[in-house]
């Protein structure tokens, strides 16, 4: 068995999630190769070669792989797939965009967001916003899989010494073109990789209060900032802050939910956190059912007190 993992990167560094996908591949067993596709991505290729447990890095460097266009990436991966028993990617927006396209071209199923490997053809994945876990067995020759990062402890990002092999670029389909990207800039840790997260909901009132209250707390804790859908929809914070069934799935050591009621769709994204703290004025809020420590009261009084106390 040999496993190919599509590695997401920003040309220089690998994105969080790749090392978790490598961990999932190790559970499956067999040799592990990473595919780095991009434009001017030799930095990312070197980073990929250092990931523990990887034996080969395939690099394809061409202008039409710059934006990760699935119309170009999928045919390239299909061309490689016959050498592999499994093709993996992390279940990020990038992986979710490309992998079903790869699977359909191969005429195989795609297995979304696995959280556990039972055997090389059997996997566990959450369904119904994580309210049930399904164990599924694939009958296909090639298994195309996305990996939920929180299900697997990342392997070391360094210590490996894989061979780097350049491969020929595939055709440019010219079917799509990235016009622009507006990426949130922040010095904080990335949400999906953060050890601590401070998350705010509708109870924050507005974007200014969200920032005035939660930024100092996050600064003190070295935490990433997250939010509920309601807080994003109301424009308090950008969309990439959303935690939940349809946002980011996180499992930090500490998750502090402030002014968040705890709808099932929100819980789906954070209930695997190691320690959950909830601050809410409503003692009946469902968030308290998953919280290790609950504090009932007005967040506008309690959050500044908490920030001062730690």
């Amino acid at each position: 068995m040999t496993i190919l993992i599509l590695a997401e990167h920003d040309s220089q560094q690998l994105k969080p999630g790749v090392t978790n996908a490598v961990a999932a591949a190790q559970k499956i067993g067999g040799e592990i190769h990473l595919l780095v596709a991009g434009n001017g991505c030799s930095g990312a290729a070197s980073a990929a070669a250092q990931v523990a447990g990887v034996t080969k890095v395939l690099v394809v460097d061409a202008a039409h792989y710059a934006g990760g266009a699935p119309e170009n990436l999928a045919p390239l991966m299909v061309g490689l797939a016959s050498h592999y028993s499994h093709v993996l990617a992390s279940a990020s927006a990038y992986g979710k965009n490309v992998m079903p396209r790869v699977a359909a071209l191969l005429d195989v199923a795609q297995i979304s967001e696995i959280i556990s490997v039972e055997s090389p053809d059997t996997f566990v994945r959450p369904i119904y916003a994580g309210n049930a876990f399904a164990t599924v067995q694939s009958t296909d020759a090639i298994k195309v899989i996305t990996v939920r990062a929180t299900g697997f402890d990342a392997v070391a990002a360094t210590g490996g010494s894989a061979a780097i092999e350049n491969i020929a670029a595939g055709v440019d389909t010219e079917q799509s073109k990235v016009l622009r990207q507006e990426l949130s800039k922040s010095d904080r840790p990335e949400l999906v990789a953060a050890k601590r997260i401070v998350s705010g909901g509708r109870g924050m009132g507005d974007g200014d209060k969200y920032r005035q209250l939660l930024e100092p707390l996050a600064d003190k804790l070295g935490a990433a900032l997250g939010a509920s859908r309601a807080a994003v929809d109301a424009g308090f914070v950008p969309n990439d802050y959303q935690v939940g069934q349809t946002g980011k799935i996180v499992a930090p050591e500490l998750y502090i939910a402030v002014g968040i009621s705890g709808a099932i769709q929100h819980l789906a994204g954070m209930k695997d956190s190691k320690v959950i703290v909830a601050i809410n004025k409503d003692p009946e809020a469902p968030i308290f059912q998953v919280a290790d420590y609950g504090l009932v009261g007005d967040l506008f009084t309690l959050v500044p007190q908490l920030t001062a106390a730690i």
Binding site: A132, A134, T135, V290, Y293
Partner: peptide
């Protein structure tokens, strides 16, 4: 193409505690 072998409930979180104030938290 996928056979569902079983569907189970996710592990339950252990119940937590309510704390009285910020100092206790």
């Amino acid at each position: 193409r996928l056979k569902t072998l079983k569907v189970v409930e996710p592990p339950k979180r252990k119940g937590g505690v309510m704390v009285a104030d910020v100092a206790a938290l």
